[in-house]
Write a protein that binds this DNA or RNA. Structure first.
Lengths: 236, 236
DNA sequence: CGTCAGCTTGATTACTTTCAATTGTTGTGG
DNA sequence: CCACAACAATTGAAAGTAATCAAGCTGACG
């Protein structure tokens, strides 16, 4: 079976107002679009692997991606997610290194690939864009360090609660305002929280029994966000 | 008792070749130096607290600083160190936020304080510096994410071994090529590794018994680095 | 030389993982 | 449309790891 690329507009017509590049002028957008490739990845497919040489910057045109690193004994640790409008791979590109994480589509996903050279030359000639990148990286760093503290000190229960809140913050709810707008497996929740699948299941089961969440098949509903925040022991 | 500021040169004469600002021209260095303050912090003193409003960028002229965040129940988590020539506080400044970590001198330390505005205006007018900052941040992010994976998946023993290696990579050895060139308490090692003081002590004792390290008072000697790397279960 | 902070040790408890076995779900080819 | 294979979720029991609690110890310093 073969998957066809959806028709993806050039950066100039992209029209995603939330987008990182939206303040560039037309000629810069054109430069980004040069040789830009649109690609489709079916749920579960890998966009790139940790350790691969960098070939470019990815924009998520539509979909959801998990970025994970391999740890001990090959266990996956999810370090962040990217959703529609987000960029992937900029850190490695900017630092002239190979990709430091593996990117896997967790929903059917369309991405634009902007070749390395095009991206870097636009960055080098656009100080305002540099400043935006600085902010983006600063923010990522803040999140990573906070995540670090959480993983280092919190119990499994607290981390699972937090993971659910992260999923909500990232992907939001469906129209019912309680069901998470993303499908993740129990194993993926475990990989976010840095625990085992079994522990994740048991903890989710406990929250379910307590009425804080509701599990129906792959659907996860957060019934009581305040209680989750309390369980996560966050003070922010 | 009062501490006097050591005479610290202006940025123009700083002369630290490893320094982040060394490629700036004289007028830019002069701008940084304007209203620059030199400050002395005795071992144990706090340079700034997590949550404080940012007032500027710190350069460590000489000394060693730990950057830590408060976690659950007020437990400290060390997120990184800064030594002679390193910068502190740039992440928060660049992201226009309050400081996200507490900085405490772990040795007698001289720092220069470059006021917020001076730093930001030099950055905004110097694209090359922006690119350097981007690299710095990218690198910090890489380290933070790797640290995250380690803390999430490794055992206490592995993390303690790794913490010792981090201390070595950061502060190096004394002339004997085995003794760590920094004094840290057992509690601080625990705060690096995300464990308790008691567990840190027991693990260090075990390494000591196995002849991998040698503990004499506050001195820590790494006798067998290869074994430590093996213990840390790192594959990099 | 008393005090205080840091260091050490032992015993107990709590939390998580691991292992193993079973059930449920989903996509696919016949 | 059914049956099967592959994957995902679940549950229980046992084993291991690390935190907690409690009590001494040690060394630096005024």
């Amino acid at each position: 079976m073969k998957y066809k690329s959806k028709e993806i507009p050039s950066c100039k017509e992209c029209g995603k107002t939330t987008h990182f590049f939206c303040h560039l002028n037309d000629s810069e957008k054109e430069q980004l679009s040069l040789h830009k490739g649109g690609n489709f990845f079916k749920k579960g497919q890998t966009i790139f692997y940790e350790g691969n040489h960098t070939f470019g910057l990815f924009c998520v045109y539509e979909g959801a991606v998990k970025l994970s690193k391999l740890g001990k004994d090959g266990k996956e640790q999810i370090v962040r997610f990217a959703k529609t409008g987000d960029l992937i791979g900029y850190r490695s590109l900017l630092n002239q290194e190979s990709y430091q994480a593996t990117a896997i589509a967790i929903e059917d996903t369309y991405v634009c690939l902007i070749p390395k050279g095009n991206f870097l030359s636009v960055v080098e000639n656009n100080p305002a864009l540099s400043l935006k990148l600085i902010k983006l990286l600063s923010n990522d760093l803040k999140n990573a360090e906070q995540h670090l503290v959480d993983v280092a000190q919190k119990t499994v229960k607290e981390r699972i609660a937090e993971s659910l809140l992260v999923l909500k913050a990232t992907f939001g709810y469906l129209e019912d305002k309680t069901t998470l707008n993303i499908h993740v497996t129990r194993a993926e929740i475990a990989d976010m929280a840095g625990t085992t699948t079994e522990s994740a299941i048991r903890t989710l089961g406990q929250f379910n029994d307590e009425g804080i969440i509701s599990l129906t098949g792959k659907k996860i509903q957060l019934l009581n966000e305040a209680a989750l925040i309390r369980q996560s022991n966050s003070f922010d």
